[in-house]
Simulated assay, not measured.
Amino acid sequence: MLETSGIRMHVTERGQGYPVIFCHGFPHTGFIWHHQVEALAGAGFRAIAPDLRGYGRTEAPADPEAYTNEAVIGDLLALLDDIGAEQAVFVGLDFGAQLVWELSLRAPERVAAVMVLNNPFAPRPPRPPSDFWTKAAQRHFLHLSYFQEPGVADVELAARTREFLGRVYYSLSGAYHYLDTWKNPPGLGYLDVLPEAPEMPWTWLTQAEFDTLVEDFERTGFTGGLNWYRNLDRNWELTAAYAGAKVEVPAFFLYGEHDPDMEGFSGRDPLATMRAHVPDLRTVIEVPGAGHLVQLENPQAVNDFLLTCLAGLGLGTATVSNRG
């Protein structure tokens, strides 16, 4: 447990060497990186997977406005200070991907490189995100819109935590086409549109792994994570200074062949857009058959990607001081 920028943060840490910090999304905790944490620690890196603000055993502020990217980036920078590192490599997925892309704009001097799964960089849009999802949500169910009203999704998902997590993880995997949820009309709940999940264990998720994730959310509920969605417009407002900015740090990208974010949430040609705005994009890899949770669905492919990219960076020992 670390004291960061005003909150207590729980981190999982393994190994010694250059720091690599893993940032998760919704509805996850730092545990979803456990395959990568062990692999990188075994290869001589200091692998750190925090439960981000509002998740797991990290504090969840009551104020919904406390969940902006700017605030969570403050947590990550405080984490770097706490471990005494001038820089780290940051790995992100889902909201964690958006977080590390923005971190590379706000504090590039603290970022040795970014390694992103499934969520490519895109420039700041000309209008707030809600302008886009509000129109879409008038035609069909869209979780981005459904999650906005405080207390609605919070109650639905917390009442059926185990069922929801099973359904949403399965729907986001390569075994299902997540955008089929868009075939449902507006006005429904999330559990009304998600498919039934197969019984555990799955080929890529054991019963014990699933139980670990369920137990965290049964304790905390989902409000902390949902508050990240409720700040999408505020994040847009807070990044006006970065309109048109390019990511200048070394970047590496991997995505699942069947990832729904690549298909439905990242524009018509997400790879071309990313290449145009990330001039030091060094690697782009597609993982056949995988979906959104690629680091669980095919951990070997993700571990190989991370270790190969880290080797190519030629990183030495991090600048670290002993802090009591």
Rank of each mutant, 00 (worst) to 15 (best):
A39I: 01
V100P: 10
H24K: 14
E257G: 05
V114R: 10
L80D: 03
P185W: 00
Y146K: 14
M200V: 13
R219V: 09
M262G: 09
Q300D: 01
Y176P: 08
V89Q: 11
L93W: 06
L281T: 10
I21Q: 11
I7S: 13
Y18E: 02
Q148A: 11
K135Q: 13
L296M: 03
T12F: 04
G221C: 12
D304N: 11
E263Q: 06
V302D: 04
V193D: 04
V11C: 14
E102A: 01
A49K: 06
P186A: 06
G56I: 08
E209S: 07
E237F: 12
M9N: 08
T308E: 05
L205V: 08
N231I: 01
G44M: 06
G324E: 05
F141C: 09
V114E: 10
G189F: 00
V72Y: 02
G6A: 06
G174N: 13
R124N: 11
P50Q: 01
N227A: 14
G314M: 10
N231R: 09
F132Q: 14
A301M: 02
N303G: 08
A78C: 05
L165A: 13
I73Q: 03
G174A: 14
V37H: 07
G267M: 09
T4C: 10
N184Y: 15
R14W: 10
V247Q: 14
G256D: 07
A62W: 02
G44H: 02
E215L: 15
P260E: 13
G42K: 12
Q87P: 00
P19T: 00
E65D: 05
R268T: 08
R14F: 05
E65Y: 02
R323Q: 12
I7Y: 12
A88R: 00
E215Y: 02
L254I: 14
R323M: 12
V249A: 13
D82M: 04
L194G: 11
R139G: 13
M115V: 10
A175M: 13
Y18A: 06
L194Q: 11
L105V: 08
R124V: 15
F132I: 11
P299F: 00
N322F: 10
N298S: 07
R275K: 15
G221M: 09
A311T: 07
A78D: 01
A107W: 04
N118L: 12
F222Y: 12
P150W: 05
H28M: 15
T68C: 03
V193W: 07
H34T: 09
V193N: 10
W228F: 13
H28F: 14
L313V: 05
G74Q: 07
A88C: 06
L80W: 03
P195C: 07
H277S: 11
G174I: 09
D216K: 05
R160A: 12
E215A: 15
R14Y: 08
N303H: 02
A136K: 04
F305N: 11
L165R: 15
Y255I: 12
E38Q: 12
S171F: 10
H10K: 06
S171L: 14
A245M: 00
Y67Q: 15
D82L: 02
